[in-house]
Amino acid sequence: KTYTFRVRIVDEETGEEKEIEVTAKSEEEAKKAAEELKKKYPNLKVELE
């Protein structure tokens, strides 16, 4: 079973919002993916929905 999570990304500089879908095998995995995004884009606000 896989879970699909919507991750909302807000670029703090431009105020631009993007939504991406993360497919993960567990909620834990999705959280890790969101953390990776935060590391990659430090000025983005990442929200897991």
Score class of each variant (00 low, 15 high):
residue 1 K to H: 08
residue 1 K to C: 14
residue 2 T to Y: 13
residue 2 T to F: 11
residue 2 T to S: 10
residue 2 T to N: 11
residue 2 T to V: 12
residue 3 Y to W: 10
residue 3 Y to M: 06
residue 3 Y to R: 05
residue 4 T to F: 07
residue 4 T to Y: 09
residue 4 T to N: 06
residue 4 T to V: 13
residue 4 T to S: 09
residue 4 T to K: 10
residue 5 F to M: 05
residue 5 F to E: 01
residue 5 F to W: 12
residue 5 F to C: 05
residue 5 F to Q: 01
residue 6 R to H: 10
residue 6 R to N: 06
residue 6 R to L: 14
residue 6 R to P: 02
residue 7 V to G: 01
residue 7 V to E: 00
residue 7 V to R: 00
residue 8 R to I: 15
residue 8 R to D: 02
residue 8 R to W: 15
residue 8 R to K: 14
residue 8 R to P: 02
residue 9 I to C: 07
residue 9 I to S: 00
residue 9 I to R: 00
residue 10 V to I: 13
residue 10 V to G: 02
residue 10 V to T: 12
residue 10 V to W: 12
residue 10 V to H: 07
residue 11 D to K: 01
residue 11 D to M: 03
residue 11 D to H: 03
residue 12 E to P: 15
residue 12 E to M: 14
residue 12 E to V: 12
residue 12 E to W: 07
residue 12 E to Y: 08
residue 13 E to W: 07
residue 13 E to L: 12
residue 13 E to I: 12
residue 14 T to D: 02
residue 14 T to E: 01
residue 14 T to Q: 01
residue 15 G to V: 00
residue 15 G to C: 04
residue 15 G to D: 02
residue 16 E to M: 07
residue 16 E to D: 06
residue 16 E to R: 05
residue 16 E to G: 03
residue 16 E to N: 05
residue 17 E to L: 11
residue 17 E to T: 13
residue 17 E to F: 14
residue 17 E to A: 09
residue 18 K to E: 08
residue 18 K to L: 14
residue 18 K to D: 05
residue 19 E to C: 15
residue 19 E to I: 15
residue 19 E to L: 15
residue 19 E to R: 11
residue 20 I to C: 11
residue 20 I to M: 09
residue 20 I to W: 13
residue 20 I to P: 00
residue 20 I to K: 01
residue 20 I to A: 01
residue 20 I to E: 03
residue 21 E to Y: 15
residue 21 E to C: 12
residue 21 E to A: 07
residue 21 E to D: 06
residue 21 E to N: 06
residue 21 E to H: 11
residue 21 E to T: 13
residue 21 E to V: 14
residue 22 V to P: 00
residue 22 V to R: 01
residue 22 V to Q: 00
residue 22 V to T: 02
residue 24 A to G: 09
residue 24 A to M: 05
residue 24 A to D: 01
residue 24 A to P: 00
residue 24 A to C: 14
residue 25 K to G: 13
residue 25 K to H: 13
residue 25 K to D: 12
residue 25 K to N: 14
residue 26 S to V: 01
residue 26 S to I: 01
residue 26 S to A: 01
residue 26 S to F: 02
residue 26 S to C: 06
residue 26 S to M: 00
residue 27 E to V: 12
residue 27 E to D: 04
residue 27 E to A: 11
residue 28 E to F: 08
residue 28 E to R: 06
residue 28 E to A: 11
residue 28 E to S: 08
residue 29 E to Q: 06
residue 29 E to V: 03
residue 29 E to W: 05
residue 29 E to S: 04
residue 29 E to M: 06
residue 30 A to L: 14
residue 31 K to S: 07
residue 31 K to N: 08
residue 32 K to D: 07
residue 32 K to P: 00
residue 32 K to Q: 11
residue 33 A to R: 10
residue 34 A to G: 04
residue 34 A to M: 15
residue 34 A to R: 07
residue 35 E to F: 08
residue 35 E to Y: 07
residue 35 E to G: 05
residue 35 E to C: 09
residue 36 E to H: 07
residue 36 E to T: 08
residue 36 E to W: 11
residue 36 E to F: 09
residue 36 E to Y: 11
residue 36 E to P: 01
residue 37 L to P: 00
residue 37 L to Q: 02
residue 38 K to P: 01
residue 38 K to H: 06
residue 39 K to R: 09
residue 39 K to I: 09
residue 39 K to F: 08
residue 39 K to H: 09
residue 39 K to M: 09
residue 39 K to Y: 06
residue 39 K to C: 08
residue 40 K to Q: 10
residue 40 K to G: 04
residue 40 K to I: 09
residue 40 K to F: 07
residue 40 K to C: 10
residue 40 K to E: 07
residue 41 Y to V: 02
residue 41 Y to H: 05
residue 41 Y to Q: 03
residue 41 Y to R: 03
residue 41 Y to S: 02
residue 42 P to L: 04
residue 42 P to F: 04
residue 42 P to H: 05
residue 42 P to Q: 05
residue 43 N to Y: 11
residue 43 N to T: 09
residue 43 N to E: 05
residue 43 N to G: 13
residue 44 L to T: 05
residue 44 L to Q: 06
residue 44 L to G: 05
residue 45 K to W: 07
residue 45 K to N: 09
residue 46 V to I: 13
residue 46 V to S: 04
residue 47 E to W: 14
residue 47 E to A: 06
residue 48 L to P: 05
residue 48 L to D: 05
residue 48 L to C: 12
residue 48 L to M: 08
residue 49 E to F: 07
residue 49 E to H: 12
residue 49 E to M: 15
